[in-house]
Design a protein around this nucleic acid. Structure first.
Ligand SMILES: [Mn+2]
Ligand SMILES: [Mn+2]
Ligand SMILES: [Zn+2]
Ligand SMILES: [Zn+2]
Lengths: 138, 138
DNA sequence: TCGATAATGCACTTCCGTTGCATGTGATAA
DNA sequence: TTATCACATGCAACGGAAGTGCATTATCGA
């Protein structure tokens, strides 16, 4: 908890109880979480506050948003030294169609994609859908 | 128009005026279209009907749905012999962040993605974002 | 032509994301 | 310490898009 405070301060983000708890929640989760998951974990806190907390984290590159194709935005903590906005740092994501969980494959970088003449690639989103390791052996 | 009728009949889809028009609209468009685009093109037709028309097309593999990350589903006609449901047939999509248009790169197949031990890949969605050929030279 | 079946239109709902504004709280300077 | 101000929080409402129930209308086969 002490470490979290120092970390947030280093990003010039005010320390609040909610921010610490949300950060801790994200850190303990092994999978990407939706806003609804956070709302369920902190039922006494207003949705809007949690929404803006995550937005603040996102704007300061503490979390990155994941579009896994479900239509619901997911969030996961960035790795140390992660540059979500830099194209070369993009990793792929996996969405399990059985348990509905989404995970980062931070060590699997997206291969360089060639686009036709005249097109300029700035960003890539790659989501693999299937069965996760927990669901595949059922 | 005659060809369209024969095509829909071959898929056991009833011929209606709206279905013919929507199919023609999709065929003439070079880019993927959102439901809202179709609604704008056929203001006299109820949204729900257009919604269900596209759903019918999708269920019969006449169009495929595209998730380009904007949060709004796009649709495009399938190529001849396109198997949207088959993993090996998947092509990538390009979304222009300037003009907001989404296009199919039907000749660019998605490279085989390796996933960690225990995970089973069934489907892949790959969207490249950037500037399209019309917007890059401005 | 008639009846079964499917398509269409209208109203309504749900879900998620987002914003406006009033209130509370914590840092800072006088 | 106290006044002040910026920012965090809570509450309410809005918005777009997707989806559903049901009554009406059109289509097709018998
Ligand atoms: Mn990730
Ligand atoms: Mn396509
Ligand atoms: Zn799973
Ligand atoms: Zn463009």
């Amino acid at each position: 908890m002490e470490r979290i405070e120092q970390f947030l301060e280093s990003r010039n983000i005010r320390i609040t109880a909610i921010r610490l708890l949300v950060y801790k929640f994200l850190a303990e989760k092994k999978v990407a979480v939706a806003l609804g998951d956070i709302e369920n974990a902190f039922e006494k806190v207003d949705r809007t506050t949690l929404y803006r907390t995550v937005k603040t984290f996102e704007e300061n590159d503490i979390v990155h948003q994941i579009d896994d194709g479900t239509g619901i935005a997911k969030y996961a903590l960035c790795e140390a030294g992660c540059h979500c906005d830099i194209k070369t740092d993009l990793h792929l994501h996996f969405h399990c169609s059985h348990c509905n969980e989404t995970v980062c494959f931070t060590d699997r970088k997206i291969p360089q994609i060639k686009v036709p003449q005249g097109f300029v690639a700035e960003n890539v989103n790659l989501v693999v859908k299937g069965l996760c390791d927990k669901c595949s052996c059922i």
